[in-house]
Design a protein around this nucleic acid. Sequence first.
RNA 1: GGUGGGUUGGCCGAGAGGCGAGGCAACGGACUGCAAAUCCGUGUACACGGGUUCAAAUCCCGUACCCACCUCCA
Length: 470
Amino acid sequence: MNLRLHDTATREVRDFVPLEEGRAGIYVCGLTVQSEPHVGHVRSAVNFDVLRRWLTASGYDVHFIRNVTDIDDKILAKSAEQGRPWYNLAYAMHAELTKALASINVLPPTYEPGATGTVPEMVELIETLIERGHAYAAEDGSGDVYFDVRSWPSYGELTRQGLDDMEPAEDADPRGKRDPRDFALWKGWKTTEPESAAWPAPWGRGRPGWHIECSAMASKYLGPAFDIHGGGVDLRFPHHENELAQSRAAGKPFASYWMHNAWITTAGEKMSKSLGNSLLVPSVLERVRGIELRFYMVSAHYRSHVEFSFEALDEAATSFRRIENYLERAAALLGEVPANGIWCAEFVAAMDDDLGTPAAVAAIHDVVREGNKLLADGPSDALRGNAASVRAMLGVLGLDPADPGWSDGSSGAEAEQLRGAVDVLITALLEDRAQARADKDWGRADAIRDRIKAAGIEIEDTPSGPKWSI
RNA sequence: GGUGGGUUGGCCGAGAGGCGAGGCAACGGACUGCAAAUCCGUGUACACGGGUUCAAAUCCCGUACCCACCUCCA
């Protein structure tokens, strides 16, 4: 079976046919770097990271471009509020985003262009649109340039909306627009804005409109036609609709497939406020590990709305530990298990069916159950193959616990040393307990175990002796 | 007004006409000195009302409720 993907433009799951055999170009709308990322923000990144990994695993040469919007109205407003330069805010928040994505093992894109670094290409694109009669400089002398939606008959094709059915924007200031639905390609500099937030252009200094940046960056790095364009559902309209219109109006075929991920929202209006900051990625990671947060996200289909709750998050973490425990016990028996095992047929079928990660995870659980049975019979090739298979499938989802991508500061040399020290101490206590057990002095044996437990360390008796874990 | 999505067992979360995905929790059993972990077993879930069909969570019609988006900012 071949990979099939849901295409927003056709509203159906279609076979994925790349423009060029064996190669896939993907453009994903990243974030506007205006504040710290919360779990909702990073879901999109995780979803498209899974797409990218599956394509790569399936043999495609993937070119993955994810942009950063580093200049826009919100950034200007927030930086003014905070009394710091806009570029400082954008830079700092970009760093936070990078950190957050690394903490959930999202691979760095092939390239991460920023809007401010692509201004000349945007100016070129706008010039083309003006030449072709699809854009015009505002008549009010503001220096704004607008896209002329009436000049593009197929406007609305992505979301299947007719221009005349759209709710008229009553509060919109028509300014120099010919039609209230025309959107800004270029925003003329205003005296209230910092001079550093403006770039030279034939229509006067100014800054790019929101939509033009993605058209320019996608074309620059992937070409006028590319395979997949992704982003959150809220971007379908107006952002993606506008990108599509302006790109096609400029003579570029643009994306073959449009993919949109659903949101994570918070439960109950009453709670949303109090949850507020606690949903920032670093804060969630005080409760669960990055790999567990990622597992939580991957457990739901990317097009399904997820209502975030800490209960569900904890449950997902418990579920993931079952898989992780299996791999640990297999490794204890076999030594290092290779990461290149085979994917089971159910897993492949699930992933090929529009990235059916919930079914893929179920397939992994089934293999783990088989593995747990094999574990009882001691080391074997079957066990090795099974564990390698689990690692391989987890790897496709970015969830292989042994992936170096999960190592952070806490698992460095210092942590290793600490672990060694704890091991010596616990081993001494376990020797006492073993003696007590040999003497059938259960009271003393359990007291030792309880004491260790009170320190936050669990003791499990396994066929190969007691094992400790934090 | 327009466009699209949703409502599944105690909980999370798949599926899209025909053997109850998977996980978490619970209960029973096996194993264990006791645990833990693991394995085996236990559920008559598809918002509501009609209809089509040998067969409907799944298709059709209607109803209710919820959500997203509708042109800088939404």
